[in-house]
Amino acid sequence: MIEIKNVTKTYDGKPALINVNLSLQTGKIIGLLGPNGSGKTTLIKILNGLLRDYKGEVLIDGNPVNEISKSLVSYLPDRNYLPNWTNAEGAIKIFKDLYQDFDEEKMRSLFAKLNLDPKQPLKKMSKGMKEKFQLALVMSRNAKIYILDEPIGGVDPAARELILKTILENYAPESLVLISTHLIADIEQIFDSVVFLKEGQVVLFEDVDTIRQTQGKSIEEYFKEVFRC
């Protein structure tokens, strides 16, 4: 579903991604793991067309990054990307108009489950509420690919559990879910496979069961071992 071939990206001569090659298939939840500055967000931005100046090739369901690939990807960035005055009703109008796969009923039901007030504007929400708001929007699309950048980054442990539950209950099993995070312990139980990014390079791409069996460790423990300075 996602083919990344020889992708290299530099900022001011400093490499952010070095010759990254990945082939990510549908029906899996894949963790994109690495410490801060390892290139996770850079890779995600490339997949979503927010970074265009790189070497290599990216194909999404056989398409280069364009309006077709964007229609297949439901993307949750690591920041609030909606206007501050928007409330759920406003966001529904935007998503309903611009995404054909948006499911309004699902969105309303998610809002209720996440205890969000559909009339409350974003500017009056806490950081955690904003994250849940955007997650509800993103998971309300019946997309082939979900790319979630640090979905539990800025929320308390109770909210993390709710967010993970929301992801698990709302993605289509035949879709691909790519989740970037550095909070591995909280989330590793939902991954099928993980990609370790270290200083812009893929150092590991493996099924979690294989890692647990061969290393005899949890993903977090193995991550700490790989990234130990």
Binding site: N48, G49, L50, N66, E67, I68, K70, S71, V73, Y75, P77, R79, N80, Y81, L82, P83, I94, L98, Y99, Q100
Partner: peptide
């Protein structure tokens, strides 16, 4: 800016 993360990831031609 932040809204660009939505605008530029919409399934819309450049």
């Amino acid at each position: 800016s932040a809204e660009g993360y939505l605008t530029l990831t919409l399934p819309v031609k450049t």
